[in-house]
């Protein structure tokens, strides 16, 4: 803050081309100083990220148990068991179902809300707060409220369906969370309410960067609102949509909290997802080795999606 001048110092810039793209590190010869800055984080990183990654792979070839009995190498036994384990496949399937069910509304509703709020500028603050506030709530607060609303007898939702809309027979209330047909959807609805605000903000930010003259010139050509949406807005939002979808996929593959709290994986395992089964194998079945093998399957799946995301980011940089 002591100098305002942008002119390069004479001694500093002499003999070097003024390059803006060269990495900053070129300016200094190698020394050990930088390592001291990086070391604390790297140490934690190795202990709590690299080491568990390696350890998990190793455990997947052992019969390690939470009970503390000696661990022995059992080769590929866990892995062959994983691939033959129907419950594991069901859990993966449920994860995929949740991902698909939730991704579509989470993208579409977010976009609709953003388009609305982008035009309703005068209520901007209130609208942003209303749609985004749920996102910052702890998951258990969200599930407590929704379990209360989903109560079959006298819960807010069934009451609305019975007494306001009159589409539900009060003798046969919908058992939202304990019916195999509705449990997954109930969790999806809660999740959409909880997290759509994040995607909404991403879209809103992208919308606000679109210069207004783009619309003006097309209006002069006689394009109406609908044509502008499909011809200008949506194409310009393509990258944001790609980002939203990929982030959504990664988040959905990691789903656990809502199921654990709302349905406990039930009824009849209809909402048991991958992390939940890992949790059950490891902490209820005490099988660290087997749970590690399961973890690695999920790990690889998320990794694949993440690589797609990474490439998306990389292209953006370039």
């Amino acid at each position: 803050m002591t100098t305002e001048t942008k002119t390069p110092r004479a001694g500093d810039a002499a003999g070097r081309p003024p390059s803006t793209t060269a990495p900053p590190t070129r300016e200094k010869p190698k020394s050990w100083t930088g390592l001291w800055f990086v070391l604390p984080f790297t140490a934690m990183y190795v202990l709590f990220l690299v080491w568990p990654t390696i350890l998990g792979l190793y455990y997947s070839f052992t019969d390690r148990s939470l009970t503390g009995r000696p661990t022995s190498w059992i080769g590929l036994d866990n892995w062959t068991e994983v691939f033959g384990d129907e419950r594991a496949w069901d859990a993966l399937w449920n994860t995929a179902v949740f991902t698909v069910y939730s991704a579509v509304p989470l993208v579409v509703i977010a976009l609709v809300l953003a388009l609305l709020v982008n035009r309703a500028r005068k209520m901007g603050w209130f609208l942003r707060m209303a749609f985004f506030a749920p996102f910052i709530l702890p998951v258990s607060v969200v599930t407590m409220i929704w379990i209360w609303m989903y109560q079959p007898d006298g819960g807010l939702i069934n009451d609305f369906l019975q007494n306001t809309l009159g589409v539900q027979d009060s003798a046969e209330p919908t058992l939202w969370l304990s019916d195999e047909g509705t449990a997954m959807w109930s969790v999806v609805i809660t999740t959409v309410w909880w997290t759509v605000g994040f995607n909404f903000l991403l879209y809103l930010a992208a919308l606000q960067t679109i210069p207004k003259d783009v619309y003006e010139s097309s209006s002069m050509d006689g394009a109406n609102w609908w044509q502008q949406l499909w011809g200008i807005t949506l194409p310009l939002l393509k990258r944001t949509t790609a980002l939203v979808i990929v982030l959504q996929l990664i988040a959905s593959l990691r789903i656990f909290d809502q199921m654990y709290l709302m349905t406990g994986g039930g009824p009849n395992r209809a909402t048991e997802v991958a992390i939940h089964y890992i949790y059950i194998s490891g902490f209820e079945g005490y099988r660290i080795g087997y749970a590690s093998a399961l973890s690695y399957v999920l790990f690889v799946l998320i990794m694949i999606v993440s690589i797609v995301q990474f490439r998306l980011f990389a292209r953006k940089e370039g």
Partner: peptide
């Protein structure tokens, strides 16, 4: 490490 899902590391 950006690509490593912490949830998949809970066991180790």
């Amino acid at each position: 490490g950006l690509m490593v899902p912490p949830q998949a590391l809970i066991i180790p």
